Structure formats: C-alpha cells, structure tokens
Simulated scan of single mutants.
Amino acid sequence: MNALPDPWPLSDEQRAITDLCRDFARNEIRPHARAVDEADVVTPVDIWRKAAEVGITDFMLPEDVGGGGFTDVFTQCLVQEELCFGDPGIGNLVCSNGFFADPVLELGTEDQKKRWLGPLTGPQAHMTALATTEPGAGSDAASIRTTARRVDGGYVLNGQKAWISNAGAARSYVVFAKTDPDQRSRGVTAFLVDADSHGLSVGEPMRKMGQRAIVCRELYFSDVFVAEADRLGAEGQGFHGLMRTFDISRVVLGAASVGAARAAYEYARDYARVRVQFDKPIIEHQAVAFRLADMATRIETSRLLVLRAARAIDAGAPDVAGLAAMAKLTASETAMFCTWGAVQTLGGWGYSREYPVEQWMRDAKLEEIEEGTSDIMRIVVSRHLP
C-alpha cells in the first residue's frame, strides 16, 4: 500500500517524522500490542515513555512551548496512520495529548499555553485528558449537565463525566461545563483542571471491547474550585472550541482508521498468498481476491479524503465540519470493513486470539463511535452538503 507516490509532496521533516513513527510502530508497538490488550485495564506507561523519549508524544505541540512544531493537521494524520498501523489503541494513546492541546491552542492565552502545554513536552511528558462525555450526553455535547458556578476568584464545578480516556493517569484535564445551565451550546465553557484538585475523583476502569491501551474512567466533580485564570476563553465560548476540536480530531481519527485498515489488509493479503486451499493459494480464489480488492480500494479512498480534509483545515477553510465528518465516517467504516475482511480471509484462524486480526476488528469498532457516531456523522454531512 506504500508503493504508490504520495498524493501531496512531503517535506524532508514530514518524511523524517513519518519514518520515525513507522519504525516505532513496527519495533515498539506491534510486538507488545497483544500483551497490552490482554492486560485489559492497564495503561502501557513503558511504551508512552519510549514514545516521549523520541518526541512522538509532543510532536504536534508548538515549538515555543517545547514541542515538535508539527501543528498542521496534515502531518498529524501522517503520523497517526503509521502509529495505528502498529496498533490502534496504542497509536491513539501516544498521540492523545493532541486532543487536550487543541482547545488550549484554540481558546487559551499565551500564558495558559505555556503553563499547561509546557509540561507535555520532553521525555517526562505528562498525560492529559479531554473531559466532555457524560452518562446522558455523548454525541450531543450541548446537553452536558456538569455545572460551573461563579464564585469569588473563579468557579466551582459539580457533575460527572464518563468514558474519559486517560482519566486517572492524566495530570491535567480540559473540562467542558455549563456556566449557564438554561442554555445549550451557548452555555458551555471550557476549563483547565489539575488532576490533584480537591473534590475531583475518578471511578474504576471501564472494561471495553477494544483499544484497551487507553483506559477510560468516570470523573466526579464535587465542588471543584477552578481559578478564573484557568477558564479557557470567555464564558459560553467553550462549545465553539469543542466543535473546532472535533473538526480536527475527527480527521485525525480518520487517519487512525486508515492505519488500522491498512494493517488488516496487509495481514490478510500476505496470509492469502501462502495459505493453500483446493491446491492453490487462496488469493487466487476469486472471492478472496475481490474482497482484498475492495479493501485496498476503500483504504486509498479513505486516505485521500482524510488528507483532503486535513489540507482544508490547515488552509483555514471557513466550514470544514461536513468534510471532517465525511473523512471520519468513510475511514472508520473502512476500518471496520477491512478488519472484518481480514478475519473472514483467515477463516477460523482469524477468529482465534492467536492472530491479531480479531483484536483489530474489536479495536476498529470504536472508530465508528468516538468523537461522534457514524449516525451522527451522517447527520453532520447532511447539514453541510456541498
């Protein structure tokens, strides 16, 4: 799948970071992926530290806070695809600080960027988390019920968040809460919250189908004080920052899906070349060959759409929500199709935990759910038809 020329020219720096992440995925991620999956609710801190040491966990942060300076979404997609080729859960984990950084970069002051993003750089980089989802508010982020009541010097947060990636391991959170509970999107405000804040607690790890490298927990806020200096943007501006974050994260997660799909395709293709049934390699059987053709075609289509959406965001296009939703929808469903296709191609062995494709199929399902389900993505696309 890498034999084709790049659809867009890459700089030497982009090629270097892509090569670095490709090698890291093959040498540090893929060999340990099954053990991480079996551990179920254990964050692979050792892999995180190795990624931090070579500059992968902070490559997307600005240079002026100590990061790698690849702030463009296009390069982030190149990296995400390569890492998630190694393993979707681990790949998403080692780049997860980018999801925390996006609203800080969009809404934060220069002082906030230095104070909160600086600790995310270097070999001892902290983990972070984005806290939006609640038990009763998933894709409908405007319906969150966590409140932020103004008091002298700041705000007091009360409420509950669910399915928060890295909760418990994170040293800091971007939390979205309602400063005006009677409003929907116009009442949402973003806050920077330290994990050691009094009144903030975490629940037990949530047991998941896949992407177990990213441990999710619930967060509980009981009169958590947040200084006014740690509010991101103005009151009521949080939803704008969140939607901007979603535009970026959906495209980046689309790239993650492309990586997962590519891994499944290449594994199934190589297996089909050596597995003999009815006196010939199964790749010579029409049903298998056609399935692999469909997988390869969907991967190339998804990659091109993801990179086009990334280019649009980087160019400052005024309305990218529909294109970002198209990219995530197409790529996530491609990942699900290709991982299913890999299991199908391996037959009974694909259903066995002896081979990685059954795990990749479980991992891929999350991409059709997180940051907006496929159903929601279709709604977004329908509202932004060209």
Rank of each mutant, 00 (worst) to 15 (best):
S302I: 14
S382H: 12
Y355N: 11
L10F: 01
A25R: 02
R291K: 02
A142G: 09
D294T: 07
D294Y: 11
D37W: 09
L93K: 09
G372F: 13
S11A: 15
G238S: 03
A264I: 08
E204S: 05
L83R: 02
T121M: 00
F278K: 05
A261G: 08
G210R: 15
C77A: 04
E333G: 02
V45C: 06
F59M: 12
N2H: 06
D23W: 02
P5V: 03
C216F: 15
A315T: 09
R15P: 05
L78M: 01
D140R: 10
G55S: 11
E300F: 07
M326Y: 06
L157N: 02
T18L: 03
L130V: 11
R275N: 10
E284L: 00
K328Y: 10
F337W: 03
A293C: 00
T339M: 04
G86C: 07
G67W: 14
D182F: 14
R49Q: 13
A170W: 08
G199I: 14
Q237A: 05
V252Q: 04
D46N: 07
S382N: 12
C21P: 06
T373S: 06
I47Q: 05
P7M: 15
R231A: 09
F24Y: 08
D375C: 14
D46I: 07
N2I: 03
P386F: 14
A190P: 05
L200H: 03
F278N: 08
L253M: 06
G168R: 13
S197R: 05
R26I: 09
R291D: 08
T75C: 03
V94K: 02
A255G: 14
D87P: 02
F246T: 15
K50A: 02
I214H: 10
Y271A: 06
R311L: 13
D319K: 12
V357E: 01
G118L: 03
P62R: 06
